[in-house]
Design a protein around this nucleic acid. Structure first.
Length: 720
DNA sequence: CATGTTTTCCG
DNA sequence: GGAAAACAT
């Protein structure tokens, strides 16, 4: 094995636990670095800080480090609210939250160390590719400064490296993974209680920066979010309790509904770590026990289903950890050859909810207006995106990232790969779901469509999910003129099916050609050139949106260079100006507000929706240089700073820490570190080519790691 | 009640 | 597309 391993400073646990200045553990000062674990309850890093003495609680805002994945507007709104909440609760226990604006997290942390005299740094693990690399590097830097660094699992039931199949290999499909999680020999760690009080480190020389999460143009839209959501860990806990004691029991019977009233609505809370997934798990399992004793079949079923969705979140981290480029490249190798349709007008129609398929359009408008979508509808719109429009899934993923309140890189990457059929257990590649049928399945009475597509509000249920079949007289009576008032289907499903067949044929052809080229040793030619280049998110995206919304939105002036693709959400005004009151299209807002559970606003003014094609050929020039490539380069640069081509594990106090070093830097710097990953073949490909199908990931690069695993069955979260 | 037929459900 | 479940005969 190539020696050294990145964890040079680490070695064994003892090596890095040498505290500097204070001999007395009791009085040492710890930095507790909050990231996506914005809670006081069941927060192992915070608990460790409190236990070892004085605490300096820190949040660092360094969005530039996120590259292409600068958080979207609604996501930033949530973050700002959540931080505010965290700050107040920390203060009530005795210490403030220090917030810092930074371009380089590591050096900011070192500055804080110097300003406060801290000797420990505690934080909880993250599993997205950027964090894996950054946190590892940062850990080494701080250790080199003489700081004790410990990190913990606060986000998962089990760390990714704990869950393996009988051959000690990571699972490549969800079902066995989740079965294994549910039958582990030890339970997930029990949730920790919040500290009773926190002794504050001296932060007088460490002032907070004021963090700015929204600009003027965003304020109005953001104000409306507060109507529907309450960020913050205390509120997350309330939401959890409300769900577990309420809708959970009906979860299984309600899963055919498109509306949000029966979902947990926990995902944004979970994304920011406002609630511990282990707490969710334990609570839900208690319920399961009770219902199982009562012989409540439906209740048990509900719990299993709900836990499965928790499992998917868990799996998304697992997946990201094992395949650090999962947000950028398909897992199945042959998918690299799929000829995606790079058509920005399709993309635009999809974003605007003007595809001509009511269920899809309703979903896209809900997403646009509220930052929220029921999981079912996410599947509908994304599957339409990939299978019917055949747009590159990464565009869709990026749009979700920009618009969803619970945007989550790992979950969304998994979701889009699942939909795109790029996972071994993903959806069938060649079958297209028909939005018309799904419409009658998830929205049998058309209520959902009518709520979000006022222009179809008067169409009878019989035609609501396929207006193109409706007789002219019916359309007239409903005030619909297809093609002007509401679009005709952007693509016929039948046409989409044949087009998909053709595309797949082409994909297999290219794949075969590439493989042949490889075998002839002429991989230069086809192998390289047909490697899917990173797909740039269309440049004008954010601009178009601005233009189209300009009537009602205060907008950033044209010359401003937006550093990120973002959405501007139309104002949601409580109005009946557009739709007559007697039509009952809109839910009474007061009633909605009276509900104690957070609810998506149900009233929207769609006056702003463009009613005719926006004739706009001129694409605004915009410097949107933040593309996925940018991320890749960043990742690679970070990786290149550690020289060894090996990966290994390092056990440190407070946790097992993944240490990730890349394969030796290749000359193809534009590629992902795991670019040589052959991915997994389809079944047929797999049989033909049994060697190359293995999931090559960085874990397999290191034989040393294997032996480590065998020797150590440490529970990483066991602290104290 | 067994058997054939249609529908539903897939992570 | 194939298994399981619901439905029909």
């Amino acid at each position: 094995m190539p020696g050294g391993s990145g964890g040079g400073g680490g070695g064994h646990g003892g090596g890095c636990s040498i505290s500097s200045n204070s001999g007395n553990q009791q009085s040492s000062i710890s930095i507790v670095w909050f990231r996506r674990d914005l809670r006081l309850e069941d927060n192992p890093a915070l608990a460790a800080g409190v236990r070892s003495g004085d605490v300096v609680a820190v949040f660092i805002w360094a969005p530039e480090e996120e590259g292409a994945y600068y958080p979207g507007r609604v996501s930033r709104w949530w973050l700002s609210q959540s931080l505010h909440h965290l700050d107040s609760s920390l203060r009530s226990l005795g210490t403030p939250l220090i917030t810092k604006r930074s371009l380089d997290t590591a050096s900011t942390l070192i500055d804080i160390v110097k300003a406060t005299g801290a000797s420990n740094l505690f934080f909880n693990h993250l599993y997205d590719p950027l964090s894996l690399v950054r946190d590892h590097r940062l850990k080494e830097l701080l250790i080199a400064e003489g700081i004790t660094v410990r990190s913990f699992n606060a986000d998962l039931l089990y760390e990714p490296w704990e869950v393996n199949d009988e051959n000690h290999c990571p699972f490549t499909t969800f079902a066995p993974f989740w079965n294994k999680c549910l039958s582990m020999p030890y339970d997930p760690a029990a949730p920790l209680l919040p500290p009773k009080r926190i002794s504050s480190g001296n932060v007088s020389r460490c002032p907070s920066d004021t963090l700015v999460f929204e600009d003027e143009s965003e304020r109005a839209s953001n104000a409306l979010l507060a109507r529907a959501w309450s960020p913050g860990w205390r509120n997350a806990d309330k939401a959890l309790m409300a769900f577990v004691n309420g809708p959970l029991i009906e979860y299984s019977v309600n899963r055919k509904k498109a509306d949000s009233t029966t979902t947990s609505l926990l995902s944004p809370h979970l994304h920011f770590g406002e609630v511990s997934v282990r707490k969710v798990f334990h609570l839900v399992r208690m319920k399961q026990l009770v219902w199982s004793n009562e012989g409540n079949k439906a209740g048990e079923e509900s719990v299993n289903l709900f836990l499965k969705s928790i499992g998917l979140r868990e799996y998304s981290r697992y997946f990201s950890f094992n395949h650090p480029c999962s947000h950028e490249r398909p897992l199945l190798a042959h998918l690299r050859f799929f000829p995606w349709v790079v058509d920005e007008s399709y993309f635009k129609a999809w974003r605007q909810g003007r595809t001509g398929y009511p269920l899809v359009d309703a979903g896209m408008r809900e997403l646009w207006a509220t930052g929220w979508l029921h999981d079912r509808i996410r599947v509908v719109v994304s599957s339409f995106f990939v299978k019917v429009l055949q747009l590159p899934w990464r565009w869709g993923m990026k749009y979700f990232w920009d618009t969803l309140l619970d945007a989550d890189l790992e979950s969304d990457a998994l979701g889009w790969q699942y939909i795109s059929g790029t996972l071994p257990d993903g959806r069938d590649f060649d079958r297209i779901d028909n939005p018309q049928f799904e419409g009658y399945k998830f929205d049998p009475n058309g209520e959902y469509v009518r709520r979000w597509l006022p222009e179809l509000a008067r169409l009878p249920t019989e035609w609501i999910h396929h207006p193109w079949d409706a007789p002219e007289s019916v359309l007239q009576a409903a005030g619909i003129e297809l093609g002007s008032n509401y679009p005709l289907p952007i693509i016929e499903i039948a046409a989409a099916k044949t087009r998909l067949q053709e595309a797949l044929a082409e994909m297999w052809q290219l794949e075969a050609a590439s493989r042949a080229a490889m075998e002839n040793g002429t991989e230069e030619g086809l192998g390289d050139s047909s490697d899917v280049p990173p797909i740039d998110f269309p440049r004008e995206t954010e601009m178009e949106i601005d233009h189209e919304r300009q009537l009602e939105l205060p907008r950033i002036n044209n010359t401003t260079v937006r550093r990120h693709a973002d959405q501007m959400v139309p104002s949601m005004t409580i109005t009946s100006s557009l739709v007559r009151a007697d039509e009952e299209v809109f839910v009474d807002v007061d009633n909605a507000a009276a509900d104690s559970r957070p609810e998506v606003p149900s009233t929207v003014d769609f006056e702003s929706q463009p009613q005719r094609e926006v004739a706009q050929a001129g694409v605004q020039p915009v410097a949107n240089n933040i593309t996925p490539q940018f991320t890749q380069n960043r990742l690679l640069n970070a990786l290149n700073s550690t020289a060894e081509s090996t990966s290994t594990w390092t056990e440190r106090e407070g946790g097992v820490v993944p240490v990730w070093s890349p394969p030796a830097a290749s000359s193809r710097s534009e590629h992902c570190p795991d670019d040589d990953d052959p991915g997994i073949g389809s079944n047929s490909y797999l049989q033909r080519h049994s060697q190359s199908h293995q999931m090559m990931n960085w874990r397999q690069l290191s034989p040393s790691m294997r032996s480590w695993e065998v020797e150590n069955t440490v529970q990483p979260n066991a602290i104290g």
